[in-house]
Design a binder for these strands. Structure first.
Lengths: 113, 113
DNA sequence: TGCCACTACCTTGCATAAAAAGGTAGTAGG
DNA sequence: CCTACTACCTTTTTATGCAAGGTAGTGGCA
């Protein structure tokens, strides 16, 4: 059935997105301090949909690994926000991710030949 | 500990590789009919390590989804081999993957700005 | 002829991690 | 004061990659 195909396709796409999720989040945080809900909407704009149940545990993991740190800040409207930023270790980690990414890109390019 | 960092890094790299595994396998098969052990060594050459426990179930899944088909062939030395190739559906699927991949590449590029 | 090494297949069980769903709490506005 | 909204977080389910272990056919060689 036609429908199976779409499902597999969507699955493969999701698979790829997962792979770079952590990398993408670090990239976003690297630009400026930012809080979870904002990360979600930025990634959605970039066509990388993430949901809350995914991002909160992930941010916690990154924080526990000391790649991220956060600071509570009041909001003018609504509850306070946890603003995340990269630690020194986090910046180093991000560099490593960029290399991995490059190497992945060239691996795929080579496989096409 | 320094060691944690390496572990996280290796993990992130593995994560990325996973994301494109299916895609990479399809790319390899697209070039010519090929059997599992050979796929493993080709991917290893391309710096995308995969192990048997990963690839056999994956190939089965792809075959069940009718993206792949196989044909047994005798070998001059050793046991017979299952040579995989893409079905028409598989070729279409691969096209979809290539688009996904392009879109992922541009998403990451955009996030860097 | 009997045994060992090799290649190629495949399965089972465990660990990780994403996603769906549901839950808490503070604030603003009517 | 109560409803809507934002932002946080947790629990449960499901998928899947990987380590480990297992089968079987072939060829070499002692």
């Amino acid at each position: 059935m036609e429908d199976d195909f779409k499902k597999s396709m969507e699955n493969a796409a999701a698979q790829m997105r997962k792979g770079v999720l952590e990398f993408a989040i670090l990239l976003v945080i690297a630009k400026r301090k930012i809080y979870a809900s904002e990360i979600i909407s930025q990634l959605k704009n970039a066509k990388l949909t993430v949901v809350e149940g995914t991002i909160y545990p992930l941010l916690s993991r990154l924080k526990n690994s000391e790649l991220l740190e956060y600071k509570w800040e009041e909001s003018k409207s609504g509850p306070p926000r946890k603003y995340y930023s990269l630690t020194a270790k986090g910046r180093q980690f991000l560099k490593g991710c960029e290399e991995q990414w490059k190497s992945l890109e060239s691996a795929i390019t080579n496989l096409k030949k």
